[in-house]
């Protein structure tokens, strides 16, 4: 008995040692910056060494919340988030269902799904910038060969189109993520419920809507929360494909934060923006959990 206890204590000590680095990392990398961002957001501070800082309380927040540029960016961010995550969920679910039926070559399909997801966002953005290029891009080449257009279209110069093009690039990148999560969840669902329903005369749509979808809800929740938070903070793909253009039509809230902080050097206002993004994200996650997460279900 005694020997076992020391072993357990020994294990606990090693366990502590092993989580120490992650504890340090979590406290140092996430908590400390969040607190200093909050602190900075209360100052009128411009960039520089030994530059003066003036405490202005919530002044930065007031400036932002009364600024049309801020709300326009919020609007674009919500549009990006809703459209891209919505389409990604529908497509991801469809692909997951397809793989679940195990058609010929489904293993290959499942493996090749990883590729778009594995491509770093910056590389993905660069790739799509080339695809959309007006003079030598693949999109114009494809549409021209199919006879859908009769001359090359300068896609990225159209303010009404640019955001949708960024969304398309994001969907290509992120659908696999949702498809893989949902496919894994589908594989764990008990088959007998659906079989019983089929015996009782439920058709395929009813079985899908009334049995499969409710059972998938926890997996959908996980995918949605992760993707929505990611989409709401979208930055790199926009930076690479459009640089916020044309005419600011792809300036999202993160892009605006980047401009204010790094390009214009308004450290205080940039910090306030970062903090607002965190708050928005928190609210969204909360709403999702209330809607989709029921106490009797476990994630």
């Amino acid at each position: 008995m005694v020997r076992k206890l020391t072993l357990r204590q020994h294990d606990a000590l090693i366990g502590l040692f092993l989580i120490l680095p992650s504890l340090i990392i979590i406290l140092g990398i996430s908590l400390q910056p969040i607190l200093s961002t909050l602190y900075f957001s209360l100052f009128e501070a411009s960039r520089g060494i030994n530059t003066p800082q003036t405490f202005i309380g919530l002044g930065n927040y007031v400036t932002l919340l009364t600024d049309a540029v801020f709300w326009a960016a919020i609007g674009r961010t919500l549009y990006f988030t809703l459209v891209s995550v919505g389409l990604e969920l529908v497509l991801g679910l469809a692909i997951a269902q397809l793989i679940h039926t195990q058609p010929p070559g489904w293993r290959f399909l499942r493996t090749s799904l990883i590729i778009p997801w594995a491509v770093p966002t910056i590389v993905n953005g660069t790739m799509w910038r080339w695809i959309y290029n007006a003079d030598y891009g693949a999109l114009n080449g494809l549409l021209l060969q199919l006879g859908l257009i009769n001359k090359y279209i300068p896609w990225l110069t159209k303010p009404e189109l640019a955001m949708n093009l960024v969304i398309l690039a994001d969907i290509w990148h992120s659908v696999p993520f949702i498809a893989l999560i949902l496919q894994a969840a589908l594989a764990t669902l008990p088959a007998d419920l659906e079989e019983a329903a089929a015996v009782d005369g439920a058709n395929a749509l009813q079985r899908f809507l009334l049995i499969r979808l409710p059972l998938l809800r926890p997996a959908i929740l996980v995918a949605l929360v992760i993707r929505t938070v990611e989409a709401f903070r979208v930055f790199d793909i926009i930076y690479v494909i459009t640089n916020g253009g044309p005419a600011f039509s792809t300036v999202t809230i993160s892009y605006l934060t980047y401009l204010e902080t790094f390009s214009f050097g308004h450290i205080g206002r940039g910090s306030a923006l970062s903090f607002l993004i965190s708050l928005f994200t928190l609210v969204m996650a909360f709403v999702y959990i209330r809607i989709l997460y029921r106490p009797e279900e476990k994630l």
């Binding site: 290029n133 007006a134 003079d135 030598y136 300068p154 990225l156 110069t157 459009t242 253009g245 044309p246």
Partner: peptide
Amino acid sequence: TNPASVSYVEEDVRNVFSQGK
């Protein structure tokens, strides 16, 4: 003017010009 100019930087100009377009 090439209408794509509205989305171009110098390197795009060089690519288009280098292709004789």
